[in-house]
Design a protein around this nucleic acid. Structure first.
Lengths: 223, 223
DNA sequence: ACCTGAACACCGTTCAAGT
DNA sequence: ACCTGAACACCGTTCAAGT
């Protein structure tokens, strides 16, 4: 108790372990999160973690739940808008802001063998919102699947064509093998030459896809 | 040459290595694909692989390209339908059939630091199809982002509410904490009590989401 | 040209032991 | 109750060596 060596480090708790794990994943991606590095970040040995969490899967379950709670809370701050669609849109964009700070989250959530409680809670609120907006349970069910991870603000891209601005000489090379893609790129890049993000703005594209789905669901609603 | 010991195993080639890697990933998931197990499946030592591929990332790049080619070829078999939308739909569903045999593919494709050539080729054809259908390059660009991994037949789900049929007693438990989800489940499960897949049919849900996006894009087209 | 063995720096985890 | 050291079965990879 009075020994400075023992008092030097706060005792481990499950909460401290999970918070440190999230910091590691945020900063170095999910592959930076190892039991050994996590322990080191906490000033402990790897084996000490096992007293507070049930192995690495326990850590992943835990951080999934913490982030899902954060998403739920952010969405909960959104007040009712003029329509179910506007409210759902605002809630999902609020969720996305959280997710942008935890980009590893969709993969971890999808990899859990048991449903993550706070994710269910988030979707429960979404179902309630859509039901109150006049959508049938059947349509809502299809809608949740159609949204998939987009419901929490994430859309999986297969390649990043906007890794950098397209150079004219790259375009001519591209045109031979991929004429349609090159044609599209040339025009889209020309329309927005100022874009510092390259020619794709993630946020704009996310909102476009989200609106496409929400609009489609609203149109399918029986009025 | 006449020594049976030496003749016992076909020499390694990049193609054989990649084919074996795909079999491993198909059968045991992407985490079953390790350099050591891959070598073992080929009757060689782990270090021998490095002569044919540039490490594990080279294997991942390689299998990503092979599967993307398979997807491209499957889509290429589809002949023109009555509209761009019908053709795109049929091509994407053909891609999905390939993907269902290689469920690890979306994750691997998304994890590549360089674009996978055959994925670009597949998207190039899709762009051409949409352009011929009267969509502007700008709309096509948004459309590709809106589709994301759905363009090759994959939709990321955050949880699998259809892991099994919902039991009545589970529903009452659920209803307390998640009233809206429970209400939806009760109705959807009731509507289709025969479903052996639980209450969610992946294929149906995939097609619903796909049509929502394709219909939305077609509607946004200037006619 | 093609393949390998030994070795290194990592993983997650078990188990017996410390305080 | 809480933490640790040694050890085990795995990883990917480098490097020098074999044929």
């Amino acid at each position: 108790m009075t020994d400075p060596e023992l008092a030097a480090r706060a005792p481990l708790t499950k909460e401290r372990v999970l918070r440190a794990a999230i910091v590691l994943a945020d900063e170095g991606g999910i592959e930076a999160l190892t039991m050994r590095r996590l322990a080191e970040a906490l000033g402990a040995e790897a084996m000490s973690l096992y007293y507070h969490v049930s192995g690495k899967d326990g850590v992943l379950d835990g951080i999934a739940e913490v982030v899902a709670q954060e998403i739920s809370e952010a969405a909960g701050q959104i007040r009712e808008q003029g329509s179910w669609k506007a409210t759902a849109r605002a809630r999902i964009l609020a969720a996305r802001e959280v997710l942008l700070r935890h980009q590893w989250a969709p993969g971890v959530l999808a990899s859990r063998s048991q449903p993550v409680p706070a994710v269910l809670g988030y979707h429960d609120a979404l179902v309630g919102l859509m039901r109150a907006g006049g959508l049938s349970y059947d349509l809502i069910h299809h809608g949740l699947h159609a949204l998939g991870s987009r419901a929490i603000g994430f859309s999986q891209e297969l390649f990043d064509p906007g890794a950098g601005p397209v150079q004219p000489d790259q375009l001519t090379q591209l045109a031979a093998a991929l004429p349609h893609l090159a044609g599209m790129l040339a025009e889209v890049a020309h329309d927005d030459p100022e874009s510092t993000l390259g020619w794709c703005d993630d946020q704009t594209e996310f909102e476009f896809g989200l609106d496409l789905i929400l609009d489609g669901l609203d149109r399918a609603r029986v009025r």
